[in-house]
Amino acid sequence: MRIRTRLCATAAVGSLLLLTGCGAADMTKQASPFANAQGSKTVTLSVQSWVGAQANVAVAQYLLEHELGYRVDTVQVDEVPAWDALSQGRVDAILEDWGHPEQEKRYVDDKKTITRGGELGVTGHIGWYVPTYFAQQHPDVTNWKNLNKYADLMRTAESGGKGQLMDGSPSYVTNDKALVANLDLDYQVVFAGSEAAQITQIKQFAKEKKPFLTYWYAPQWLFKKVPMTEVKLPAYKEGCDADPDKVACAYPHTPLEKYLNSDFARSGGKAAAFLKKFRWTTEDQNEVSLMIADQKLTPEQAAKKWVEGHESTWRAWLS
């Protein structure tokens, strides 16, 4: 962004040395080389790997492009590296953050390279889930105290002699290993390694109406495809998850937040103002996510559909 004007004038490789030959070059102030091509104003948004985040970005992108005349680049980055990228200005905004106290302290409070962008309007919650068809047959499975009774049914080749508790992407917050140990459960945590793998496996289980226990989170479009019921864990109390090895309580409910790169927040003009005002509901997000992930619309088509039906909501973001 900052070197935009000079860049356009000196596209020739020959001027590389002149530009970089002397003086300090702060890496943390360099934009993406694909930004601002052909003289358009570009906003770079970080998309995390889950579909809810894609839905936020799709709608923001659609409005930025069609209502405000920006060009939007999206980059998919994991959560923690995204903070790093945001502080360096490689991306301009994160639209959905599930709470990273350590990074918040470092970048927002100490270095001041990242600015809070307000709440997204969606509340996130992580928990353990069983499919609703199974919970209806065995209503007592929804309490953690009875989980051991069903360990046999949840067994897979991968979990060996124990029941399988399926965890997802390594980038997600999880206390599951500690929970299983501290609650004395006869379960083995199996890491699916990516959300895509986890979703695919859940769908395959659901197709055969097999019982399973999985780490999952709401809001998530998959609930519409595979209805799932949460298993009650010991209630969450402030600070009960302070020591990662001794956690024995449920996950909290987190209001999801937006974060902006500080420079972008200051000088990002209409785009920055728009992103700060961007705020919608869980239902809105799910509607778009479902169109992307289940009806296989492109994010752009899904965003267009939502934008056409909810003009009153997004008009407020543009004023």
Partner: peptide, 11 residues
């Protein structure tokens, strides 16, 4: 180094 790469790719 980083700057040179960004400029080259951009060019």
């Amino acid at each position: 180094v980083s700057n040179a790469i960004v400029l080259a790719v951009r060019a």
